[in-house]
């Protein structure tokens, strides 16, 4: 029959252009975004290979050379204990990236799953999850983090010490990671609601598209439809949110460390370095300037990249 004879319309002979390649093409032409990307790449490199780049130990004190101004020997000078500020800033970059990536990853997974379930399955899930989101968002971030840190840190530390005295197991003596655990936990707890809201809104709009009905008509299960049809289509705005979220998480970590509820000294964090530097900035401005400048640079870089991604992934939104 005419099955074989049917003459299909001619197709354009262009190479296939995928959504992502298209977006990359648009991103490349955005100078600010590329600047942001380069800065982030550099900081990420520094964070990954920090220990091999720094000439000094970040904890090594040289009491002979305290409060020195920047020089060739100490690029960013030294602090009041004679520690090399450059090494500490590098290590602070590690802290910032570690916290930002882990916190954003937890918040993203939590927010995406909750938002997708709320949007896709509707009530009663939607009601409960959105109520939870609203409640979390209504508590001031700072307050929540302070409460968590103040109420949990001491008991855990005391418990660890008791365990150590009981067992003499060196595992219980190391307490730096409690800091990190609490920072990760409390920051993830306050960071997931925006992701959940975004994903829910996306899913609500995607759920009513014809290709979802078509997938249902194919007999695919809800799980497959959610994973293969709904979430991939919601990814564009999510990527933008993640890029902005990483920057926010870094600033947030610095803010908490600055206030003494984040990463505690002697572990270097940009935040606690700024806090230390602020006390003596009139005499030794470099102690404040170095960590503050790097924090500012990182924050700006993530904003630029987020903006650029937004334009690249929503071609209709840009001019």
């Amino acid at each position: 029959m005419s099955v074989v004879q049917a003459q299909p319309a001619p197709l354009a002979e262009e190479a296939p252009v995928s959504l992502w390649r298209d977006a990359w093409y648009r991103l490349k032409r955005n100078r600010l975004a590329i600047f942001g990307l380069c800065v982030i790449a550099l900081l990420a490199f520094v964070a990954l290979f920090g220990p091999y780049l720094t000439p000094y130990d970040f904890l090594g004190q040289d009491l002979e050379a305290r409060n020195q101004a920047p020089s060739l020997a100490h690029l960013f000078g030294t602090d009041d204990l004679g520690r090399d500020v450059f090494s500490r800033v590098v290590y602070g970059t590690r802290t910032a990236f570690l916290v930002a990536v882990v916190v954003t990853a937890i918040a993203l997974v939590l927010g995406t799953v909750l938002g997708a379930v709320a949007g896709f399955f509707g009530n009663p899930f939607d009601g409960v999850i959105m109520w939870l989101t609203d409640v979390t968002m209504s508590v001031p971030n700072l307050l929540l983090v302070v409460v968590i840190n103040a109420s949990l840190k001491t008991p855990i530390a005391q418990w660890m010490e008791a365990r150590y005295l009981e067992t003499l197991n060196p595992f219980y003596r190391e307490t730096v990671w409690i800091d990190f655990l609490l920072v990760f936990g409390s920051m993830a707890l306050i960071s997931w609601p925006p992701y959940a809201r975004l994903v829910r809104a996306q899913v609500l709009s995607i759920r009513s598209r014809p290709y979802i009905t078509a997938a249902q008509a194919l007999g695919l299960s809800n799980r497959i439809i959610l994973m293969r049809y709904v979430i991939p289509n919601a990814l564009g705005p999510l990527i933008v949110a993640v890029s902005a979220g990483l920057g926010t998480a870094m600033v947030l970590e610095s803010a908490f460390s600055f206030l003494g509820v984040g990463v505690n000294p002697p572990t270097p964090s940009w935040g606690n370095m700024i806090s230390d530097g602020l006390r003596v900035w009139q005499h030794y401005p470099h102690l404040l300037a170095a960590p503050a400048a790097v924090l500012g640079l990182a924050s700006v870089a993530f904003s630029f990249l987020g903006d650029g991604l937004n334009d690249a992934l929503n071609p209709r939104g840009s001019k």
Binding site: L19, P210, T213, A214, A215, R228, P232, N233, L235
Partner: peptide, 15 residues
């Protein structure tokens, strides 16, 4: 088997 009305929107655009 089901064939839908609008082929422009009935296919998953990212697959």
């Amino acid at each position: 088997g089901f064939v839908f009305q609008d082929p422009m929107t009935s296919l998953n655009p990212v697959m």
